[in-house]
Write a protein that binds this DNA or RNA. Structure first.
Length: 312
DNA sequence: AAAGACGGCAACCGCCTTCAG
DNA sequence: TCTGAAGGCGGTTGCCGTCTT
């Protein structure tokens, strides 16, 4: 015996979501919280599969999502992480607290991959010996260590950018999101507001004051307590963006603790003169070595070619 | 100005893991 | 303990807007 079926295949609507459907879904989540997606179609009358509802929420309607306008820092972080983790987009996106795995994946496939190929091609023309025959075992071990060192250094670099810079949108690349409308006086600063894609922001505004319920024992991280940021962000001194990041990190079914989100809050608290937030284990791992410069050990390292030729 | 090519991205598909019954 | 659905995730598709000819 298993669970009852989530939804029958017949009569399920496909294709783009309408604003009305979005509104229904947002209202449901506002009332019940994210999760138990199989109940959404039955409860709301939406003619959508539960999976489709979850996808729509996690990728577009969830508060705090930033669309398009990837910064150079984000570019670098994605490239580094992709080199280290491969196409594990969910893991990569966990280091970009306001990005979704789908967004990162699309951005990689449509922008970064091409950019990387061009840069690699240019590098091969400058130094054809770069892509040399595979190394022997000793070299391979050295390579692996270099990969790890590079990734750590990259993460340090990317995550140590001043908070204000992180929150700024470059506006020179990626999707051309329309400029947000004028904001009321009590709204967050423009730099923060720009972080939201227009339509998503509109819907997200409906969720003001809403906080995700405490994750149940459902899949994901049953033994993992919510990150510190979730509770601390409710202090009122933190920005809307921080709260969004916190709500993301504390959302149910989130497997990896978003380190970047924690760093976000640490930096913001430090900037505001607040108390020091303890370093997590991962942060400590990232930041150990005292930020010492590490040089690539091999010319033949493909990762080196990717990273350094990419202009990083 | 029109038509075809191209690129970006939202959404679907299918596989895998987790977990409820 | 077993079964099968839910949820998560990465790959892929197809629509739509933009660009080029």
């Amino acid at each position: 015996m298993g669970r009852p079926p989530c939804c029958d295949k017949e009569g399920v609507k496909k294709g783009p979501w309408t604003p009305e459907e979005d509104l229904v879904l947002v209202s449901y989540v506002q009332e019940h919280g994210p999760g138990n997606w199989r109940a959404v179609p039955a409860t709301t009358g939406l003619m959508r599969c539960s999976k489709s509802c979850r996808l729509r929420w996690t990728n577009y309607l969830r508060p705090g999502i930033r669309r398009g306008g990837f910064s150079d820092q984000e570019d670098r972080l994605i490239v580094h992480l992709q080199a280290l983790l491969g196409n594990r987009w969910a893991a990569i996106a966990s280091y970009l607290p306001d990005r979704t795995d789908n967004d990162v994946k699309n951005y990689w496939n449509t922008h970064l991959k091409k950019k990387l190929l061009v840069q690699q091609h240019q590098h091969q023309q400058r130094a054809p010996s770069t892509l040399s025959p595979p190394p022997n075992k000793g070299q391979w071990e050295l390579r692996l260590q270099t990969d790890i060192d590079l990734a750590r250094r990259a993460l340090r670099d990317a995550l140590s950018v001043p908070l204000a810079e992180k929150m700024m949108i470059s506006g020179t690349r990626g999707a051309t999101a329309p400029a947000p409308p004028p904001l009321p006086a009590e709204s967050p600063p423009p730099a923060l507001v720009q972080a939201y894609e227009l339509t998503t922001r509109d819907v997200s505004c409906m969720l003001d004051g809403w906080a995700p319920p405490t994750p149940g024992k459902k899949s994901g991280s049953p033994a993992t307590p919510p990150p510190p940021v979730a509770a601390e962000s409710a202090s009122g001194s933190t920005s809307e963006l921080t709260e969004c990041s916190a709500s993301i990190s504390s959302a149910p079914n989130r497997r990896a603790a978003p380190v970047a989100a924690q760093l976000f809050v640490r930096e913001e608290k430090a900037a505001a003169g607040g108390e020091e937030v303890p370093l997590s284990e991962i942060e400590s791992w990232l930041l150990e070595d005292g930020g010492g410069e590490q040089k690539p050990a091999h010319d033949g390292l493909l990762l080196d070619a990717a990273l350094y030729n990419f202009g990083f």
